[in-house]
Amino acid sequence: MIGVLFDKWGLTEKEGREILGCTLDEYQEMKQGKIEGFSGEVDEKICGALRIRTALKFWFVDEERRNKWVKKPNKIWGGKCASEMMIVDIKGVRKYLESDVW
């Protein structure tokens, strides 16, 4: 599930691993469908990514637009895109998106 989402967002394998803080082996297991047995921190970041996906559905009806938004420079983060910010603060990205949704 997470691998499909990251593919839709146009993330590289390296970006996906950096966002989740996981090893190459763990990331490949995720892309093959494994959904449990990861560290608490990795699980928390997977949950954060899924919540970002949900919040984006409220922001953008069009799937293509919401998927492109993740890689689009954003003035809220000084010209960095959401995927760059997720690497350093996935909770912050999630909270930003959810604050305007809920």
Rank of each mutant, 00 (worst) to 15 (best):
F6E: 06
G10W: 02
T12C: 02
T12E: 12
E13N: 15
K14E: 14
G16P: 00
E18N: 13
I19K: 11
I19A: 08
L20V: 08
L20H: 05
L20W: 05
G21L: 14
G21P: 07
C22Q: 00
C22F: 04
T23N: 09
T23E: 14
T23K: 06
D25P: 02
E26Q: 12
Y27V: 09
Y27G: 01
Q28A: 08
E29N: 03
E29L: 15
E29P: 05
K31D: 05
K34D: 03
K34Y: 00
E36Y: 12
F38R: 06
F38I: 08
F38P: 07
E41A: 15
E41F: 04
V42A: 10
V42R: 03
K45H: 10
I46R: 05
I46W: 04
I46P: 01
I46C: 04
G48Q: 14
A49P: 05
L50N: 08
L50M: 14
I52H: 00
R53E: 11
A55W: 10
A55R: 06
F58D: 13
W59C: 14
F60E: 12
F60R: 01
F60Q: 08
F60T: 01
F60S: 04
E63Y: 04
E64S: 13
R65L: 12
R66G: 00
N67I: 10
N67F: 11
K68A: 14
W69Q: 08
V70Q: 08
K71M: 13
K71V: 09
N74S: 09
K75R: 12
K75G: 08
I76C: 02
I76H: 01
W77M: 06
W77G: 10
K80G: 01
C81L: 00
A82E: 02
A82L: 14
E84A: 03
M86H: 01
M86L: 05
I87K: 13
I87R: 06
I87G: 00
V88F: 12
V88K: 13
D89G: 07
I90D: 07
I90R: 03
K95H: 14
L97M: 13
E98I: 02
E98P: 02
E98W: 15
